[in-house]
């Protein structure tokens, strides 16, 4: 049972020429994911969601803030990073580029097993490799293990990538757009696989995506990000069915949903939903009830003005 806690994570990128103003990719981002739960982090390109993923697996060093496992901040540095990564793993977006084209599948899966001491002998390794292949439903296992990435389909590759992430027997899994590069007809299959694996292994999963529909259906809570900041958070159904922040409304309206009626944009929705808290500051994880619905107060925020105007236009047009 492991809880991932991301607290006040901030990342500034210095502009390329050095002295210019820093670009704040992630601004005071906090989230808690408990074991056996999926939390979706939703946002469009440039919202900072991938930077959050990379900070969570220590590919990027945060400018400020910390990542805690069970309330403890793990040490940093070579050895400690390795230990950390035996607990926190990641599935990358593009299975076409996240597997080394020049190494066979067996090698790429066996490495994490050996690095993290999961197996001690060749026989154990063989057994564990077959177990991993079975866990991600790849068969015939022995044959696939012998292959190179280019001999596999996109879906098969992503299964291999998931198996690699599972190899160190992690407690936390960061899935960064794990299906956006795959053909639509196999996306749900892969997400279902991740969901099953979460249940079987009691994983805490942070599911990063731009797709609201799968975010709603595969996670218990949704955090919506825009320009590095959280604009809305709450239980999945609450956020999708009663979106309050203008940006969330824009996202919900934009997502194709032919099976439902048209979505009504409503800037005053919060007035009819007193259970939604509007706030200028991100809620504090220690005191904040996890399931509560929160939205960033946009009413006095100059940065959101154009957004509000766009939405007002849409609301008027649909009336």
């Amino acid at each position: 049972m492991t809880t991932l806690e991301v607290r006040h994570l901030t990342k500034d990128y210095r502009s390329h020429r050095g002295h210019g103003a820093a670009l704040r990719a992630v601004d005071d981002f906090s989230v808690r994911v408990t074991a056996g739960e999926t939390v979706a982090l939703v946002g469009e390109s440039g919202s900072g969601k991938s930077t959050v993923a990379k900070m969570a697996v220590r590919l990027v060093t945060p400018t400020a803030g910390e990542v805690l496992l069970d309330g403890v901040a793990p040490a940093r540095g070579g050895r400690a990073d390795k230990r950390y990564r035996s607990r926190v793993q990641m599935v990358f977006q593009d299975p076409f580029s996240s597997l080394n084209p020049s190494l066979p599948i067996a090698y790429q899966l066996a490495r994490p097993l050996r690095i993290h001491g999961v197996v001690r002998s060749a026989a154990e390794e063989e057994r564990e490799l077959l177990r991993l292949m079975e866990a991600v439903n790849l068969s015939p296992a022995k044959e696939v293990l012998r292959k190179y990435p280019h001999e596999l389909s996109g879906g098969q590759r992503q299964r291999v990538a998931i198996a690699r992430a599972l190899a160190p027997r992690p407690e936390v899994l960061i899935a960064d757009e794990p299906v956006s590069m795959l053909d639509v007809s196999i996306r749900l299959e892969i997400l279902q696989l991740l969901d099953d694996l979460k249940r079987e292994n009691d994983l805490a999963v942070l599911y990063i995506t731009h797709d609201l529909a799968t975010a709603r259906h595969f996670s218990s809570r949704i955090v919506v990000m825009r320009r590095g900041r959280v604009v809305e958070r709450g239980r999945s159904d609450d956020v999708i069915l009663t979106p309050v922040h203008p940006y969330t409304q824009l996202l919900v309206r934009a997502a194709p949903d032919p099976a439902s009626g048209p979505f009504a944009v409503d800037l005053q929705r919060y007035e009819r939903h007193p259970e939604v808290t509007l706030g200028a500051l991100d809620p504090d994880l220690d005191t904040w009830p996890e399931d509560a619905h929160w939205a960033r107060d946009w009413r006095d925020d100059d940065a959101d003005r154009s957004l509000v105007e766009e939405l007002t236009g849409l609301a008027a047009a649909s009336r």
Partner: peptide
């Protein structure tokens, strides 16, 4: 490239990254 990041996340050491993931390319 992503697979170099992926190898880092898998826990590969710097030397191994250099010799096995980067140098062959």
């Amino acid at each position: 490239r992503d697979y170099v990041d992926a190898a880092r996340v898998a826990g590969e050491s710097r030397w191994r990254l250099m010799l096995r993931e980067i140098l062959p390319n």
